[in-house]
Design a protein around this nucleic acid. Structure first.
Lengths: 197, 197
DNA sequence: ATGTTTACTTTACACCGTGTAAAGTTGACA
DNA sequence: TGTCAACTTTACACGGTGTAAAGTAAACAT
């Protein structure tokens, strides 16, 4: 039933992502999304009750199409904790550019909107699981930096690989994705692992 | 002339800072500021043409009362580049808590408001000068990490000591200022300096 | 063929916060 | 007594989100 519904819904999600990705001016309003989707503004509200819920759905939509879960799962194959950390960061860093548009919109919105804040926190919790796993891998190898708790290592890793930092380095300071990746991997390693002999 | 004017003006600035500092809910409107200042909302507009200009003035006001210039100048006394980096970060890190409220409001606002964005960029340019000086000090001692340009080092330092990261570690993850300081100093050192023999 | 349902459109409006406009009040100072 | 400055009060425009409700057009069922 309602394949038309499905089509409209995913059309909205798709154009939302496109607009946010392109989003030079960053200001993507409900009316912009409607216009770009070829439907009325009210019709958008038939599919998504609010702007924040639309953004959340868009984030989920990207997760599915980009298959982030698979990517992160793959990063868990390395034997050594240090390699695993590197692979984890690589997977995450490659994922950032594809969510950036939507993530940015959510980041801005979470400052005012409770729902957006909750959605953001939820996604950060998921990322934290990945960081926790990476840190556990390091601890197993006794490669966690001495005098550092696991919690501290996870917190630091979260901060180092944050989207904000990616944004600043690439968007603000013009770093290439490649350069970003190698420097962040190195910093993360130096920040939380014990230098090997 | 107009000492009354001056009094009202600084009263507004003061309460603005207070509200933003306290700012649990973060939403500090012009009417909130007016009410807390004991004047009408319109009177606020007699002193500041817009919300963004008020925030900018508030930031300047804090700079003056906290004497940030002096603090940063002091950090330039160390002889060794590495010590100087450490002192610079210490001065900056101690400054963050006192501007955080206003800075946060500006950060949020800059996403929508051109003026706020310009003001923010201006402040970041000032901070960058400090970073540049610290990096120059390292380069002089040949302590800059091998294979790293000065620009890269400055960019990384900017990111590592960013207010966003401070916010995440202290506000989100509950780190104490002391712990923040020591970890960030260490990460900055490891990120951009050559490990000494 | 008729009615019902579904996916929309169109029009209109309430709400919130920013910012503008203008007329009125109050006190100081000359 | 007049005028200037700092303010108050009231009112309103604007942009963006979200609600409400009546209308339309095609699909489907009986």
């Amino acid at each position: 039933m309602s394949s038309e519904n499905q089509n409209s819904r995913s059309k909205i999600l798709k154009t939302t992502c496109q607009l946010l990705e392109a989003g030079d001016g960053n200001k993507v309003r409900m009316s912009d999304i409607a216009k770009a989707s070829g439907i009325s503004r009210q019709a958008v509200y038939l599919h998504f009750p609010s702007r924040s819920e639309l953004l959340i759905a868009a984030a989920r939509y990207i997760d599915e199409t980009e298959n982030i879960d698979l990517r992160l799962a793959k990063s868990r194959n390395s034997e050594r904790g240090v390699d695993r950390l590197e692979a984890f960061i690589e997977a995450w860093a490659n994922y950032i550019p594809s969510v950036y548009g939507v993530a940015k919109a959510l980041m801005v919105m979470k400052e005012h909107d409770v729902e957006a804040k909750a959605a953001w926190d939820d996604r950060m919790r998921a990322l934290r699981h990945g960081c926790q796993a990476a840190v556990n891998g390091l601890a197993k190898d006794r490669m966690l930096q001495s005098g550092m708790t696991k919690k501290e290592a996870v917190d630091l890793l979260m901060v180092v690989i944050s989207i904000r930092n990616w944004e600043e380095l690439t968007k603000e300071y013009g770093w290439s994705q490649k350069r970003y990746m190698s420097f962040i991997q190195r910093i993360a390693r130096k920040a939380i692992t014990e230098p090997s002999p």
